[in-house]
């Protein structure tokens, strides 16, 4: 069943459609949510509210060609709202940038055993230089299979900004890989 059909079934009040949607997307939503909120319980609460509201509003929801994108957009909004509320409770400052904390690493095959502790920590520092928005773009692109239109909608950017953001993130990643590659070459020829 395509996303369009399943969405229509949901709008028609088919409870099984809701369960199907949950089964297909709950795990990815959970993992995405955890990047903003380290507290798993809070993420569960947001997902729970999201699905209950989806069911209650099923007759009014707009059509979508990508259920996953729809859910990501809604979950992100919900999380942002929850976090803003928390921030306001603590201090009445401007709500700051949301923290997107994806713990990225490089495929072990690429770094092999040549990495000693010092180099590994250098790699960590290099990865940490990716901004939070760059991380989120890379995450959505490579771990949630989103295209730029979808990423734009989720992160509230236009298509071109989403693309640029991703381009810059990949450029940084290429530089990191280049450093690793050079280190590896030097190691290989016994220069270090």
């Amino acid at each position: 069943m395509s996303d369009l059909e399943r969405w229509q079934a949901l709008k028609d009040g088919d409870k099984r459609a809701l369960e199907h949607i949950y089964r297909d997307h709950a795990a990815v939503l959970f993992k995405y949510g955890r990047k903003f909120m380290p507290d798993a319980q809070l993420v569960e609460d947001c997902i729970q509210d999201l699905f209950i509201e989806l069911w209650d509003a099923r007759q009014r929801i707009s059509a979508t060609d990508s259920i996953r994108k729809y859910l990501f957009v809604s979950l992100r909004r919900k999380i942002v709202k929850t976090l803003d509320r928390q921030v306001k409770k603590i201090a009445s400052e401007e709500p700051e940038e949301r923290h997107f904390q994806a713990d990225f690493g490089i495929d072990q095959l690429l770094i092999q055993n040549e990495m000693d502790a010092e180099r590994e920590s250098k790699l960590k520092v290099a990865m940490a230089a990716l901004s939070e928005r760059q991380r989120e773009v890379l995450y959505l692109k490579y771990f949630a299979d989103m295209d730029y239109n979808q990423i734009g909608e989720i992160m509230e950017l236009n298509y071109q900004s989403a693309r640029n953001l991703s381009h810059r993130a990949l450029e940084s990643l290429r530089q990191i890989l280049l450093v690793i590659f050079i280190v590896w070459l030097c190691n290989f020829f016994g220069l270090i």
């Binding site: 990047k35 798993a40 713990d103 990225f104 495929d107």
Partner: peptide
């Protein structure tokens, strides 16, 4: 495209 890994907990 294949280099990135992410450490995350599966529910």
């Amino acid at each position: 495209a294949t280099a990135l890994r992410v450490q995350e907990e599966e529910p």
